[in-house]
Amino acid sequence: MIRGEPALEVKDLKTHFNTQDGTVHAVNGVSFTLHEGEFLGVVGESGSGKSVSMASLMRLIPMPPGEIVGGSVMFENQDLLQIDIDELRKVRGGDVGFIFQDPMTSLNPVLTIGNQITESLKLHTELDKKERNSRALELLELVGLPDAAQRLKSYPHELSGGMRQRVMIAMALACTPKVIIADEPTTALDVTIQAQIIEIVRDLRSKLGTALIWITHDLGVVAGLADRVLVMYGGRIVEEAPVRELYATPHHPYTKGLLDSVPRLDQKGEELYSIEGQPPSMYTEPTSCSFAPRCPHAFDRCAQEVPPLRLISPGHKAACFFNVTTGEPYVD
């Protein structure tokens, strides 16, 4: 496993949305470190805060109604939550690239593909026009777009979903970023096209050595791609572990429930485990474990305190008062 220097250090990040119906506590104290060249998977269901927390890193949430109420994001010795917006713009699309879920809505429909890729090169590099164009062509070839030279002159609507997502990846890679944040990049794609994109990302990893945050709800995608996984629930990280360890010995009952409720293509079906109940309401600041109402192991303490992340083994943390190994609550 690759473990470089920390590329991104996030501490106690909190994001709220102030709506008419009250304050939505979307992210409630998220801390993690992304290492250089590491592939980090972020798994969670809708409303778990996975997208909001990662968008908050670059202050990419609409403010208002959004508000980053606390925490720090250290990148290259500066706190991205404190620096002024012009400084931050140099980071966005420069040292930190983005890939969004829906390439149709994140590409500009009236600009050619070539224009959109060279735009960020113009902002973030010293290259002249000719160099920018040849760099754009090189990038499209890198992500395996057929007829790359031709495609530079195409508009987004002339490309298929898979091709558009390749363009998004090319754009994210344009300025050789240190970190790429990919938010459900394959969710809108068909499974054979998803496989193509995953293959490209695997291939790029060996060529480029960029660190990657891959946000998804699909436990299968993460299993084959990530070095380490964060599991989110109720706006918090509930478990964090190296990928093999997480799937082999999950420690949080939510992670375990999630893994058990996913059917496997290579195995015959039995009754699926289902996590009863519904995801938590985010309108109140959590004062207890958000998963407790659905948890098979919950006991009185779970309804009284928010469980902190507890170190299970090197690199493996879980936010739970119950020790699944011994089958008894932890004694602090």
Partner: peptide
């Protein structure tokens, strides 16, 4: 066959040793 091999398995060990058929192009 290609469809089967394109579906990711929620199992890092199986994923790392899997033979994949990646289809070219779009429908």
């Amino acid at each position: 066959q290609a469809l089967n091999s394109a579906v990711p398995l929620p199992d890092p060990i199986a994923e790392s040793t899997r033979q994949r058929t990646i289809l070219e192009g779009d429908i």
